[in-house]
């Protein structure tokens, strides 16, 4: 299972990359694997204000729908338009081209609740049991 060192993680299997005052968000390699082939990604439009834990979009495979939640409170300032035509990027490159939204966060304190790679790995193995 691919869990990059430099990223932060949530219990709902989102990853978050801190870029100055913004957070780039996607779903983890584990999540894309659990979903199976992604066929559609629906993202909230830019400008949407979200509270931590609000959905920022949904990811669909042929047999499942899964919501993607905001790891922090803030405003969506960018969405990945490429996913509209190529949802398979979520499977192929979940930490790269498969990113979903960029959120300008309000309170840096929110970041402290996120897990680091080691914690997430432990969380995954605990969940597997």
């Amino acid at each position: 299972m691919n869990i990059p060192e430099q990223l932060r993680y949530t219990k709902d299997h989102e990853w978050a990359k801190i870029e100055d005052n913004t957070l780039r968000v996607g779903i983890t390699d584990y999540a894309q694997h659990e979903m199976g082939d992604v066929v559609y990604v629906d993202l909230k439009p830019t400008g949407t204000k979200v509270e931590k834990g609000d959905p920022v979009g949904t990811v669909e495979s042929v047999k499942a729908v899964s919501e993607v939640f905001a790891p922090v409170s803030g405003t969506i300032i960018e969405t990945n338009a490429a996913l509209e035509q190529s949802p398979e990027l979520v499977n192929q490159d979940s930490y790269g081209q498969g990113w979903m939204v960029v959120i300008a966060f309000e309170d840096a304190q929110d970041l402290e609740a996120l897990m680091d790679a080691k914690d997430y790995e432990e969380y995954l193995s605990a969940e597997a049991k």
């Binding site: 559609y40 495979s61 042929v62 047999k63 499942a64 729908v65």
Partner: peptide, 11 residues
């Protein structure tokens, strides 16, 4: 059958 994620058995 397609677009089944709209339907009751999944959503």
């Amino acid at each position: 059958l397609t677009l089944a994620t709209r339907e009751q058995h999944i959503r």
